[in-house]
Simulated scan of single mutants.
Amino acid sequence: MKIIKVLIVLVILAVIGITFWTYRSLNGPQAHNKSDQFITIPPGSSPNQVIAKLTSEGVLSSEIPLKVYLKVNGGATEIQAGEYQFKSPITPLEVLAELKNGKLRTVRLTVPEGFTRFDIAKRIAKQFPQDQTGSEDAVLELMKDVSVIKDIAPQAKNLEGYMYPNTYDLSRSVTTPAIIEKMVVEFKKHWKPEFADQAAKLNLTPHQVITIASLIETESRFDDERSIVASVIYNRLKKGMPLGIDQTAVYIAKMEGRWDGVINRSDLESNSPYNTRKVVGLPPGPISSVSESSIKAALYPATTNYIYYVLNVDKNDKSHKFYATEAEFERGKAAYQAWLAKQRR
């Protein structure tokens, strides 16, 4: 009987000791040397695999306390894959809380309004070099897959104009096709169902509307001015005048891989169908990414008799002055050229 009592006492003491040790271990901060590094927990990892990995990395001093805690309290299924940066020191319970919240290390990709597919491809290739499809040419090749926009623009030859300008927080492991798809999905959020109806009222296809919107996007940075720029484009189209938008020359140079940051005479004299100085009508497709503001301007242009515009030197803020006659335009252009010459002195 005495032996049984002693054994019971020993068991009780052992349970108390283990409980105390487990409690202390779970709540005791553990210092480690990985606080400046990201530790990746792959998808599909079991709780035991996660605990073993963190123990081998030194974030946990022992596997047992956290395994016991999960066995008694549950919560193993709440552990999420991700990329974690654990502070030091940190307790096992704090580690578990982090694992339940789930963390993904992201890369921020910013696509400004007016970026071309060439600009976007260059930025993707630079920011996601770990992707095997991440070379600039490979990204451009992926942008030729227009199946994702066939419901909007079945005649499109590439995704120019259909990748929405925005800031995207993306996983470091994201693939280039997924990035492109995300930008197209974002575009579709901004292309409202009623826009197609309005395009039809203008006797335009959605692709033509996006093309006009891209011209507007490259010409004006001000939302309240874009509908006026749109009116100039429509007025010139009605009169059979070349649109004369120099950004199409920039686009030609980028397509031909010779853009050096300056519009050269050869760019303006190109026989490309995108050259709006020589070819009457719209270019074959968009020349840049477009914002919803520019799409709306293309769909709902202001009613004016303007057919010219020049940068407003009085404001010097990249806004424009608009003109209905060539004589007015020539005076405005002369004032702009005089201002420009003065800036170069």
Rank of each mutant, 00 (worst) to 15 (best):
I12C: 14
A14N: 08
G17Y: 10
T19A: 13
T22F: 02
T22Q: 13
G28C: 03
A31N: 05
H32A: 07
H32M: 02
F38T: 08
V50I: 05
L54H: 15
T55C: 03
G58F: 03
S62A: 11
G75E: 14
Q80V: 12
G82Y: 07
I90P: 05
R108H: 04
R108T: 13
L109H: 09
F115A: 06
A121Y: 06
A125F: 00
K126T: 14
Q127N: 08
Q130V: 15
L142E: 04
I149R: 00
A153K: 10
Q155F: 10
A156S: 01
Y162C: 02
M163Q: 11
T167C: 11
R172Y: 15
T176C: 01
T176Q: 01
I179P: 02
F187W: 12
H190M: 04
E194F: 11
K201R: 09
T211D: 08
I212H: 04
I212N: 07
S214A: 03
E217C: 04
S220I: 07
A230E: 13
I233L: 04
P242R: 07
T248M: 00
A249H: 10
I252M: 06
K254Y: 03
M255I: 10
D260Y: 11
V262G: 05
N264H: 14
R265W: 14
D267W: 08
D267K: 00
L268R: 01
L268E: 12
N271D: 12
S272W: 02
P283H: 01
I287E: 11
I287R: 13
S289D: 01
E292L: 06
S293I: 13
S294P: 02
A302C: 04
A302Q: 10
Y308W: 08
N312H: 13
D317E: 12
S319L: 01
F322G: 15
Y323W: 10
Y323T: 04
A327Q: 13
F329P: 13
A334P: 10
W339N: 01
W339V: 03
L340N: 06
Q343Y: 01
